[in-house]
Amino acid sequence: MTRLLIVVVVTALLAGLFWFGITASQGRAIGPTQLGRVMPDFSRPVFARYQAEFGETLSLPTGKPVVVSFWASWCGPCHAQAPTLEAAWRRYRDQVLFIGVNTQDRGNERQAEAFLNQSGITFPNVKDLDNRLGVDYGLFGVPETFFIRRDGTLQHRHAGPITTAQLSAQLEELLQ
């Protein structure tokens, strides 16, 4: 009986230690960002179909709020959220610039064009061919959407597909 007790006690101690480990590691997972950083500017080539309206290269505008949305052709949720972004763009295009950034898609030019065809997006999209812009922005993955204020500081970043409600809330705040 004593031996059984020893087994139970040792197991309980280990269980306690490892349970602590599990909860501590979950607490350690990347938490929500602190905001207010001035986002790095960039200059990237625009996809051909948008060049007439937006020029050959695009950079962050000054004095105007921007929504920068990172996507890749192979990313399912990016497809899913494209209509949401497009609808918001059509409503806010006079006040907020939407820039789509095609990243992590090296060698997939055909698929990227297909993505744009399928989604029918009319806001400008640029190519991040060497994935550097994603790194500069600290991208976690795609899709990820950055809301940048008029003064160039980061208001919010949303990792994963975004809903209409979340998008509207951020846009309203951008325009204040």
């Binding site: 890749a72 052709s73 192979w74 990313c75 399912g76 497809h79 899913a80 992590q104 997939n108 698929q111 297909a114 993505f115």
Partner: peptide, 9 residues
Amino acid sequence: LPIPPLDGP
């Protein structure tokens, strides 16, 4: 997946 992506990472 109901909507398969075109490619993977």
